[in-house]
Nucleic acid binder design. Structure first.
Lengths: 338, 338
DNA sequence: TTGAAAGCGATACCAT
DNA sequence: ATGGTATCGCTTTCAA
């Protein structure tokens, strides 16, 4: 079966491929009549232009790459939804790459995206990432990149985050006001974003004259079982906290599991507030007090910024951080003890 | 800045592009010495082959397309994770397309994927899909496709599902054994998969001599607010059910919300079991009895089957359905009333 | 307004 | 073992 490509179309129409190409892209230098004929034939033969030929020629892929640590996380899902909504409007394709929080994997992906497969990148860096040379390389190649949530401060490009410091402060303050004296901090990333949340935590403690206790700072891993053990150990000890501010949802879920298993009552024995985009947070037992990020909007914002660079020639993304506001949603997991 | 491509590499090395190309792909007809030199230079210059040029020439994209109704659903997320795990091993890229349960959108996507952008497709059809001509076209073009979960019976290709009929039967039977006399069925798809779950529901009722009541069959939409209203109306009526078997997670979540709002106690006033891959099902209030599908394995299985077709020449996917087993996980939402 | 031809970058066939 | 060259399908000068 003969392939339906430009050449074939042109032959059927008795035109040159260049004419057909222009007609299909609605060029003004082609007569309306010819356009009609070409369109009709293209439709009839079910012609679909080969994207790779086009990309090769134009040196543009109409594709954006999204690099994220994991996908089993409602935050990233919502971000992807936001990205997809805009990308779809612009007829761009979305390639998703997962680092699984693995620095080597991230390096590999970034390295390979320098080959022109994507026109731009949206990225949330892995929690393992400390060295950023691979990201510098991208900059050098002129591949536009926009960071979101887990940003890379040292790379001069656009970043989209939420007011992490502020939320860290608010969450901690909330726990204190609900009566907590020993507030723990859970996270697992070494990223700037977490250090901001942590900075808010530290400042809130300071403000209320509560000394920071290192054993209450828990750094988890990507392994839920490990986290469960870590948390269980802490909550079973004599020096267990009476409040937890979790910077990551996974740790909060593990905490719920631990409490159920060792018989700690939330919120009477221990209160908890967590960064989370869990849809069913209100349905948990007890309902979970959260810091909820505008994830969908973060995705939209990040991709919109990226498109500025994709659509304008010689436009370099500003080294600027765009901050969207998260919200503290108070629920039962931080209710005052009776 | 001169681009680092084969030509440039060849020039630097004083070799022909064909030689360099072969050396890079470790062809046996190239001397070890030359290979070493080429590899070294490629590494030094940070050479990345242009995927579009390669795809154009080889008429292979090393990319698979995943078409799903939505991504904000733990089932599909896990499936994607399974797909990605295998795709990564094989060095394939994954393009994700969302239909948002919209038939026209699905048609559009499928139509456009006939252009060679992907080598194969994994798909769960939209709940709106009734006409399958667009899928037939794919078959005609020789683009291999594997359906999973929401399969399309009439297309002769490989399908991966779970034992839906059986689970529908088990779930319903479970409710009956827990004392329910009026069991409702919630879903929103017109797909075969749902009709199987529903068939199990119907047969279980029949087996236990319970007449099927049409007003207890609720077909939701993609709109959560609408579903909420629908469910609220049913549960507020005199003829409300005392048990619900939900074929879709979303409807179960809406049901929880409704019950909380109108003051119905689960499981005393009403029991519920739902198809769901919600990670926090055990943490809900009350914990949710679920039919849990092996989503990750479904993804792995589907993509593995697809790879058979991608890796073998002239291999046509069998018109066969591969069935993985789901599990009924009993929790508190179906506990016997005191 | 249309056509001819060059070229994007990699690959594979045919030489040598 | 290596080199020359046509080719994948499309876009874009340049010519007519």
């Amino acid at each position: 079966m003969e392939p339906v490509n430009l050449k074939y179309l042109a032959k059927e129409l008795g035109l040159a491929t260049s004419t057909v190409s222009r007609a299909l892209r609605n060029s003004h230098e082609i007569s309306d009549e010819t356009k009609q004929r070409v369109m009709a034939m293209a439709k009839k033969l079910n012609y679909e232009p080969n994207p790779y030929a086009s990309s090769l020629r134009k040196q543009k892929s109409k594709t954006i790459g999204v690099i994220i640590p994991e996908i089993a996380n409602n935050f990233f899902i919502l971000v992807i939804n936001g990205i997809e909504a805009i990308a779809r409007e612009k007829n761009y394709h979305v390639l998703i790459y997962l680092t699984h929080e693995d620095y080597e994997r991230e390096k590999y992906i970034v390295q390979h995206l320098q080959n022109g497969r994507v026109d731009g990148i949206l990225m949330s860096v892995s929690s393992e990432t400390v060295n950023v040379d691979h990201l510098m390389d991208l900059q050098d190649k002129g591949l536009p990149i926009v960071f979101f949530d887990r940003v890379c401060e040292s790379i001069p490009t656009a970043k989209v985050t939420t007011d992490d410091y502020n939320c860290g402060y608010l969450a901690t303050e909330h726990l204190i006001k609900q009566g907590c004296k020993n507030v723990a901090y859970f996270s697992f990333s070494r990223q700037s974003i977490n250090s901001k949340r942590m900075a808010g935590y530290e400042d809130a403690l300071k403000k209320y004259g509560i000394p920071l206790k290192p054993h209450l700072i828990v750094s988890g891993t990507t392994n839920d079982t490990e986290n469960y053990k870590l948390i269980k150990k802490l909550l079973s000890s004599k020096q267990r906290p009476d409040g937890i501010f979790s910077a990551v949802e996974k740790m909060a879920v593990s905490t719920y599991n631990v409490c159920a298993d060792i018989g700690l009552n939330i919120p009477n024995d221990i209160k908890i507030v967590s960064f989370s985009n869990l849809e069913v947070a209100p349905l948990l037992h007890p309902s979970l007090t959260t810091i909820t990020q505008p994830a969908f909007d973060i995705g939209k914002e990040a991709v919109s910024i990226l498109f500025k660079s994709l659509e304008k020639k010689n436009y370099t993304l500003p080294d600027e951080t765009f901050i969207l506001k998260s919200a503290l949603v108070v629920r039962d997991s931080t209710k005052k003890s009776a």
